[in-house]
Amino acid sequence: TGEEYIAVGDFTAQQVGDLTFKKGEILLAIEKKPDGWWIAKDAKGNEGLVPRTYLEPYS
């Protein structure tokens, strides 16, 4: 299990392996990579890379 984050903006996948999401979606951070791209999972179970700058902790 990971930590929940809320998307603060829309993001469209730029390449294969990225995860597209919309502002307000809750994402589960699976792995926090030091380069600023995290592996996350959305509510539908889709998994991919997301930019850290689009996420804020969800409580």
Rank of each mutant, 00 (worst) to 15 (best):
K44H: 14
V16E: 14
G17N: 07
T12G: 05
I6N: 01
D35H: 07
G17Q: 06
K44E: 11
T20R: 04
E31D: 12
V8I: 15
A43H: 10
I6P: 00
G36N: 06
V16A: 13
K41M: 12
L55E: 02
V8W: 05
E4D: 06
E3N: 12
L28R: 10
G2H: 14
Y54Q: 08
W37L: 07
I26A: 03
A13K: 06
G45L: 03
T20S: 15
D18Y: 15
D10E: 06
T12V: 11
F21P: 00
G9K: 15
T12H: 11
W37H: 06
A7T: 10
L49Q: 09
A40R: 00
N46L: 07
A29M: 13
G17R: 05
E3G: 10
L28H: 09
F21A: 02
G9M: 15
W38H: 01
G45P: 00
Q14E: 10
A7Q: 01
E56S: 10
I6D: 00
L49D: 04
Q14F: 09
D42Y: 00
V16H: 12
E31I: 12
G45S: 03
D18V: 15
K32Q: 08
K33T: 09
L28G: 03
Q14I: 13
T12M: 11
E4N: 09
G45D: 05
Q14S: 11
Y5V: 03
T20N: 08
L19V: 02
I30N: 02
G48E: 02
I39Q: 06
G48L: 02
A13Q: 05
G48A: 02
F21V: 09
Y5E: 01
Q14T: 13
E56L: 11
T20V: 04
E47A: 09
K22N: 08
L55Q: 00
G9R: 15
L28Y: 13
K44D: 11
P34W: 10
A43L: 11
P51G: 05
Q14L: 12
I39R: 10
W37P: 03
G24Q: 02
L49K: 13
D18M: 15
Y5D: 01
I30Y: 05
D35L: 04
K22I: 07
V16R: 11
Y54M: 14
A13E: 04
N46G: 07
K22L: 09
G2C: 13
K22D: 04
L28N: 07
F11D: 00
P57D: 05
K22W: 08
L27T: 00
G17E: 06
P57S: 08
T53D: 15
E25Y: 05
N46I: 08
T53S: 15
A29T: 08
F11Y: 14
G48W: 03
V50E: 02
G17L: 04
D35C: 10
E25D: 15
